[in-house]
Design a binder for these strands. Structure first.
Lengths: 199, 199
DNA sequence: ACCTGAACACCGTTCAAGT
DNA sequence: ACCTGAACACCGTTCAAGT
């Protein structure tokens, strides 16, 4: 029509596409496959092109983790009372992060785990506030819960991908690990969130 | 005397020495400085010599973390009642790991955090059993506490060494982080360990 | 503005060869 | 048994040069 056709004929490559393809690469082949050269091959461009779009590998990793954080953000919260809903929000973080464990390990290796949970925080904060907590109490509960979620993820991931030649620390099943995470979360949630007396 | 002099005249290099020097290197220059070539230079040998003694970089890292685990193992446990003593054992893990944060980050990056806490586990288990817990209850309490300690370490280390260009998640002070860790630990310890009624 | 070839300064690992 | 020089197959990053 009247509008000028924007020139995206050939490459159409932009930062967003680079990050999205990089995320796919990590998901399908693991964190170790995320190499600037490998990603360049995947995108069918020269290696320096990636640097033009994302600056450095660290920035790329941060962008990947951030993108995954956004994708995790719209999980439904269930539960009748405040404690159940807060626990549900916390479990969304744990379960969501585990769904793409390659991204989560990448985040752990690079110290960006907090970034991965960032967009799910809003929902958790909302539930904490809905439960009647205010100000510092929300902050304390939030960080305590984030701490437990992070620990649960690290323990789960490092227990799952275990080295041979292990020292005594028996490998636990996925179900055991999830039960451990949930029960520990429940303890701290119940501690911070006031119970609702019925009627 | 009558004994033959063992030939350790020149190098006297063995696996133990390699690992000890590698640990020192990480402590003094950070996890990123741990390079096979750099370590070889430090030991004044060729790079392949290191492989002869430790096999691979992964094995070397595991040995370093294991050595640090041993060094952490003799921290005194304080407290009058069972809950206080269990909390003390747990805090020993957190505080000990933070004392050599370079080793702890190395452990996190390589997914060997569990190894780092391994030798401090015995003391924690002993206190849990002394508190009256038995069998599965000990196991549940132990793993729940380990999960929280691990989470506290990750949160503390990644909050401390923070990237510039941060997204809203205000940096917290070391004291705030320690208070968060302690209070979260106390919640799960008190949940698992029965209280002692006085007299 | 966007992309490239070629290079720099590194990695972990292996291996034939030395003593 | 212990150690080496030299190489292999990679890395992240930069930069002059192209369009």
């Amino acid at each position: 029509m009247g509008r000028t056709v924007t020139k995206l004929d050939r490459t159409g490559l932009d930062r967003e596409a680079v990050v999205a393809v990089a995320l796919d690469l990590v998901v399908s082949e693991g964190a170790a496959a995320l190499t600037m050269r490998r990603l360049a091959t995947e995108l069918d461009v020269g290696t320096p092109t990636i640097y033009w779009h994302v600056g450095s590998r660290d920035e790329l990793v941060a962008a990947i983790v951030q993108l995954q954080s956004e994708r995790l953000a719209d999980r439904p919260i269930v539960g009748r009372d405040a404690r159940a809903r807060v626990l549900s929000a916390a479990r969304n973080m744990y379960a969501g992060a585990l769904e793409q464990r390659a991204i989560t390990s990448l985040a752990h290796q690079t110290g960006t785990s907090a970034l991965l949970l960032h967009d799910l925080q809003a929902a958790l904060v909302a539930e904490l506030e809905a439960s009647g907590l205010e100000g510092d109490a929300v902050d304390e509960a939030l960080h305590s819960i984030l701490l437990v979620v992070t620990g649960a993820l690290v323990v789960t991931l490092s227990d799952t991908a275990r080295l041979p030649g292990d020292r005594g620390v028996r490998a636990r099943s996925r179900a055991e690990l999830e039960a451990l995470a949930t029960s520990t979360l429940r303890v701290v949630v119940d501690h911070h969130v006031p119970s609702e007396e019925r009627r």
